[in-house]
Design a binder for these strands. Structure first.
Lengths: 337, 337
DNA sequence: ACCTCCTTGGAGAGCGCTCTCCAAAGAGTC
DNA sequence: GACTCTTTGGAGAGCGCTCTCCAAGGAGGT
């Protein structure tokens, strides 16, 4: 094995030109005489030459890859069960492939793996980082910033930081949910929030509460969930015990909404006739749920693609200042509310 | 910008030793006097030195990354909607992280992107490839093999090839499903197969039919689906029209099973009392489905991890012959059958 | 005390590529 | 026809690292 493969040198020798000329033909830098180009291309064809990536990036200081860092709290690879990360990946890949950039997937869920990520970027193994982090306390943004690594976040950082990010107006999303529930005439509504150490969870809840309060509902019972169907199930159970008369529920993501619907149905309650349920995200489970979920749409793929775009752009022009792009949520009305 | 960062040379100068010595300390090759080691480590600390990845891999001819190639037929990033790929990713990442190897995610769904994958590997951008391919006609395995790229497949290749792979005994899975349906006393069973250009689909169906035939049911009506909930929905609809008396259904994955259950319920049929439904995979939707699906478990994460393990092993010993690891499916009984 | 063997540090040759200089040659200009 | 200006190919210096060789010094044997 030890594939050595033909080098620039080999091609140059066969074509009877210098290394520099071959390099120019390969990279399309500067003018090269068309005849010579032809000769060189033949030589390349003949040898089956492919430029060596390591050698190239040693001098260009570019790798053509970026790190896609997923910093879940949970035990590592469980995160992929959540459709959210699949959607992020899809959006990122979708954009990057148009630019010939490749994503390296990294999980950052422990001190150790976080250090690995920083190390990886400092080594120049990737040109920049896309950081999908939920928890407000995540330390990676500042560490990457300190290491001078071009970084773009999905979701604003826990503390103000001169870093680019894309985000959703989660509060507006919460308001949308509240408006729908009130529009349906619900009078006793509860909420199942996401983990409260996640900014998005806080924001969704804040927006929801605000809108309710503004309309004469100063108090909304809230149970904290964990963004999983099981946690939504449990939360709905508690809500039902404490407030049996509930007729409207806002769950901070679709998975939890699904869990809530299940409990409701198990208790012989009809959705949406007896209890209306609004989810959040508009991911696959929202459609699969019976009844299909009315939900607040988060355009995850588009946001992820934008995140990738912002990074690639800042890679091309490193002097650029950080930007932020905030997306607007949208209410998708289906059957559950 | 243009972070230059300290080099080996810098560290060597500060520590008052040669480059070679610093390299030895960093890589732990050969003995180095403990005192000297201490000095060198201090210098490293002081300068914040990190080895340059490109330079290193230029000489070692190793990158510490592998390509995780997902070759769906569908329009690219849609694949991530299918929980299957999320599970594969989880399994791969889970194993690789223990070995300090990083996966680069690539989609191969067009001629162009397939060529990109080959190019990427030939450039030495990654040390090997993990290829998750469903379609039997996929050309990548042979192209990668021809290029001398260490490769491991998820699912056996369409044509016999000297390449390592992991796979499931899909036929045994089909038999398991048939056995369950017959055990429940079903007399009129139908099947919703996966796309028939996918080997796994063929095998699941073959196993299922065989087991049915062996038990006195020579004919099983089959409708081909596309592994999506919508296609399962459509397929069940047709099955119901053509065979209204059906009392058992085998769907070749959980997504389609879910679609089938929905149709059944819409038609006022009870699952499993009127019609028993068996799915395949045991992915998240199987649990989320109402009723929860009885299904044939494919240990995707474990298989993906094994695939990664086989690749890493063959990277360490390139002279090794190809291996194959076949996993056994398992029936998971829930409520739908 | 001499010789051999083992340990350990340094020198330096690349790995394959890009890119800055230079030089040569051709095209204009007056 | 002598001059400058532009175009285009070649030479060669690195990019930062690993690793083979070599030499120096100390330990052990006789």
């Amino acid at each position: 094995m030890t594939k050595v493969g033909p080098t620039l040198e080999d091609v140059a020798r066969i074509a009877g030109v210098s290394r520099a000329t071959v390099s120019r033909v390969v990279n399309g830098t500067r003018n090269v005489d068309p005849n010579l180009q032809e000769t060189v291309r033949n030589a390349i064809e003949q040898t089956g030459y492919t430029p060596n990536h390591a050698a190239r990036s040693l001098v260009t200081r570019r790798t053509g890859t970026v790190a896609l860092v997923i910093s879940g709290a949970g035990g590592g690879s469980d995160v992929f069960v959540d459709p959210f990360f699949g959607r992020v990946t899809a959006g990122v890949v979708d954009f990057l492939r148009t630019r010939g950039v490749h994503p390296v997937l990294m999980l950052a869920d422990t001190d150790r793996t976080r250090a690995d990520v920083v190390e990886f970027l400092r080594q120049g193994s990737a040109d920049g980082a896309l950081l999908v982090t939920t928890h407000a306390a995540e330390s990676l943004p500042e560490r990457l910033l300190a290491a001078g690594v071009p970084t773009v976040l999905y979701a604003r950082p826990g503390r103000p930081l001169p870093v680019s990010y894309v985000d959703l107006d989660h509060q507006a999303g919460g308001r949308l949910a509240a408006a729908r529930l009130m529009e349906l005439g619900c009078t006793t509504v509860g909420a199942i929030s996401g983990p409260l150490d996640v900014l998005a969870s806080q924001d969704r809840l804040t927006g929801f509460r605000e809108a309710m309060a503004r309309n004469g509902f100063p108090y909304v019972p809230v149970v904290e969930g964990g963004f999983t169907a099981a946690s939504g199930h449990a939360a709905m159970g508690r809500l039902l015990v404490e407030h049996p008369e509930v007729d409207g529920v806002f769950a901070a993501n679709d998975l939890m909404a699904q869990g809530a619907v299940d409990v409701l149905l198990e208790h012989g309650l009809r959705v949406p006739q007896d209890v209306a349920v609004v989810g959040f995200d508009d991911s696959a489970p929202a459609l699969a749920c019976r009844p299909p979920l009315t939900t607040v749409r988060q355009p995850v793929e588009a946001m992820a693609a934008k995140m990738a775009e912002v990074l690639v752009t800042s890679l091309e022009d490193p002097e650029q200042r950080p930007t932020s792009v905030i997306f607007e949520p949208e209410l998708v009305i289906r059957a559950s509310a």
